[in-house]
Simulated assay, not measured.
Amino acid sequence: MPSPRYSIIPAGAVTDRSLEPRDLQVLCLLGRHTDDLGWCRRSQVKMSAELDCGRATIQRALERLVGAGWVQMKRRDLSDDDDTSRHPSASYAYRVLLDQDEPGRGCPPASTLPPAPDSCGPAPEGVPIDEHPGAHPGRAPGAHTYVGTKNDPLERPHLERERERAREGKTEHESVARFLTTFEARWPSAAVDDRQRTAYAAAALTAQQREAALRGIAGFLAEQKRVKRDRIPAGWKYLEQRRWELLSAAKPETTASTVHHPPGSSAATALATLHQIAMLEAFFQKVYRMPDGRVSWRGELTPRLLALANAPPRAQWSALNNQQAAAWDRYLADHVTVATRRRIMTGAFAPWPWPPRKDGTIYLESAADEMSPDASTTSDDVIGDQQEGGPEDDR
């Protein structure tokens, strides 16, 4: 059984705050490869391989150890038979300065020692044995001082922060992976979506946003169905645009109570005319007209809707051109919610050429006057004013 291997280093180096943790590793490594005289001829390449670091890191650590007096360094004798054969790349030998040289060992020539250590002989009188006379604790050059903080170099807080960030990154990656699994199981178009883009969009969200996105899927799909959208957007688009926030930010619809309007009232007449324009008279009689003649309605009676109470008789209605039919179709879409409503086409009839404005006023000019060259309103103005129910009256 092989004998145990030891690495003896000076006790004072352990508490030298000017050294970095890597310096102590190099110091221990030197002590593990010493010969009978305490010299280490290990090459820097091999030391860097053992410590899994770069050769430049080893060189900087040795410079700090030599500068602080914990290591002696000398040029290796080129006449040494193993220098050129087995260690062609090693040009220096290193010795760890212990508390006190062994009696009779002696010291290397003074010319081979660096300026920092004063001696490697026995400790002079008055100097404690556990403190080497050549050591200068706290004077290692190039050690990190962490300017602006009170952190000690040996604590290496930046390494702890890096490890913490690595742990958080791993946890975040796992959280995103779990979210993607759940999201793809719930999203209808996940099988044909760009999975990489979906993953990027998920990673850009916070944990709270991902939870809200999952909660909002059901409501978003229900809204898509309510507005009769046949195509479901891609999952990454839902996440990138945060559609669930738009859904939650929408004003909740107030539940209007049903109001029964007496026969012959302005509201009952306007509602009957509305369904006549939409060609839904039979539906109106069946659903909204009560046996006693009253009309039940849960919608809002705006001035624009009540204006239909003043509509002329059916025989006096106007035939609509393409632009007027489009304006009336938009008007009906705002007031009639029946899914089977037919679209208002060119040639259909309405009480006036243009639907009422928002304030309930009526534009009475004929289509021929609007489109004539002498008209004060151009065709572009007519198209733009359709959004408000008809062109503005310049008179």
Rank of each mutant, 00 (worst) to 15 (best):
S3Q: 14
S3R: 15
R5G: 05
R5P: 00
A11D: 02
A11Q: 06
G12S: 15
G12L: 12
T15F: 12
L19E: 04
L19N: 05
E20T: 12
L24S: 00
Q25F: 06
Q25V: 02
V26F: 07
L30A: 07
R32P: 00
D35I: 02
C40P: 00
C40R: 07
R42M: 13
K46F: 01
D52Q: 14
A56R: 11
A56W: 09
R60L: 09
A61D: 02
L62M: 10
A68D: 01
W70H: 11
D77T: 07
S79R: 12
D80G: 14
Y92I: 04
A93I: 15
Y94H: 15
Y94S: 08
R95Y: 10
D99L: 11
Q100L: 08
G104S: 08
I129K: 06
H136K: 12
P137L: 09
G138M: 06
H144A: 13
T145Q: 14
T145W: 10
P157M: 02
P157H: 14
L159H: 15
E160N: 10
R161F: 12
K170L: 05
V176L: 09
A177F: 05
V192A: 07
D194K: 02
D194V: 00
R195E: 07
R197T: 03
A201D: 06
L205D: 08
Q208A: 15
G216C: 01
A218C: 03
G219Y: 00
E223V: 07
R226M: 08
K228C: 00
D230R: 13
D230E: 13
I232W: 10
I232A: 13
P233M: 13
A234M: 14
Y238I: 09
E240Q: 09
Q241L: 13
R243N: 04
L247Q: 12
P252E: 10
T255R: 15
A256M: 13
S257Q: 14
V259N: 04
P263S: 11
P263I: 10
S266T: 09
A267T: 02
L280F: 01
K286C: 01
Y288N: 11
M290A: 13
P291I: 06
V295Y: 11
V295F: 11
R298H: 08
G299H: 07
T302G: 06
R304Q: 15
L306D: 04
A311G: 01
P312E: 04
P312N: 04
A326C: 01
A326L: 08
W328F: 05
V336E: 01
R341D: 09
I344R: 13
A350W: 01
T361I: 02
I362V: 13
E365H: 12
S366W: 03
D369P: 02
T378N: 04
Q386L: 10
E388I: 09
G389M: 05
P391W: 01
R395A: 13
